[in-house]
């Protein structure tokens, strides 16, 4: 279970980083950042996994008495929720910035923007 999740997380991170480094199109770079983000989220949730644990929601099966033995760690999941929202904000800002860059030069190729290059 955790093996599959770990492999997925690491693969997503590597694919995202490859996309960020190898692409010239700004929109594709933003997609790379999104993939990297998703990989990190999967990784954090995996770290909070407890062997044989179930979702940290109490019901008839997981009562208040045996909760500590049956659930997975709720804290990484809460942190990932925060991380997802921040990731969404970063993506929205990058897209807005890409739009502005396109309006300035009518191009989304990152090699056309040389002002900050030295």
């Amino acid at each position: 279970m955790e093996t599959i999740a770990l492999i997925t997380a690491f693969a997503l991170i590597l694919i995202g980083l490859f996309g960020i480094l190898s692409n010239k199109n700004i929109l594709k770079i933003i997609i790379g950042f999104s993939l990297f983000d998703t990989g990190l989220h999967v990784l954090i949730v995996t770290v909070g996994y407890i062997k044989g644990g179930t979702a940290p929601i109490l019901d008839k099966v997981v009562g208040t008495s045996n909760a500590a033995d049956k659930i997975v760690d709720p804290i990484p999941q809460a942190l990932v929720l925060t991380a997802i929202v921040i990731g969404l904000g970063v993506t929205a800002l990058m897209l807005a910035y890409a739009l502005k860059l396109y309006q300035a030069k009518k191009s989304l190729n990152i090699t056309d923007f040389k002002e900050l290059k030295w």
Partner: peptide, 26 residues
Amino acid sequence: SSDTLTPLATHYANNGVEEVGAPNLV
């Protein structure tokens, strides 16, 4: 993966219901 919760998560699991009263611990 570890077999047991961290002390903080154990506290949330055991006392979350009396302190907060929500079934969804997250």
